[in-house]
Amino acid sequence: MAEGGIDIRPVDQFIVKPLFGGDVVNWYTPTNVTLWMALTVLAATALMVYGARGRAVIPSRAQSMAELSYSFIYKMVEDVAGRDAIRFFPYIMTIFLFVLFANLLGLIPFAFTTTSHIAVTAVLALTVFISVTALGFVLHGAKFLKLFWVDSAPLPLRPILAVIELLSYFVRPVSHSIRLAGALMAGHAVAKVFAGFAAALGAAFFIPVLAVTALYALELLVAVIQAYVFTILSCIYLKDALHPAH
């Protein structure tokens, strides 16, 4: 089993490599992260700018897709975070498109999935967390802390609840980022493992290939749902900052 057996390395696909040779990854080195993030930005731009270039009253297919995603996120921000959250709509839209296209592009075989890296999702989640917290204090001052002081609970319970609320508040960016990175990492690693089985099984290769095909459909769903969930959770956190009194 050790030699010539199954040699599957499911996590090799996540390695950050410099694009133009060499081993040293400095902060400015163009790596595969750079390449796939650039492609993500390009794809989002292609949809939102090039796709909607016609400005037609009766939209083309690409234009209606762009408009659909626009009104989908617009409505989400409006419904979940309230009307006064509309001024943050461009940022929410940026997050959604970036995560969505990074997830979808990562499904291309041999692609590098930028959103499967905790560093990336953690920065996205921390940006939301820090800006939302700062926004809450700027808008409401000390009253923002009432978010942790549950008025509807009996008085002796309130300090305990406050501790729990505070804890869950600080766990938010952790679960927010690990959910996205974990879901994608899990899917890609499992797909790699199954693909490795196909290579090792020889004649019976079609069984894992079928499994990978089914898994791929699931991963497509997961990619879209995780982008949706990441965005809607950002909207919920934003709502807490705008209207802290539950």
Binding site: M37, V41, P90, L97
Partner: peptide, 28 residues
Amino acid sequence: TYPNQIFWLVVSIVVLYLILSRTALPRI
């Protein structure tokens, strides 16, 4: 590899944000 990823992430997010908020979203 963290500084590298974070750097390029910030670059692409800023670029995407500028493209969207300056051009794409007002147009749509």
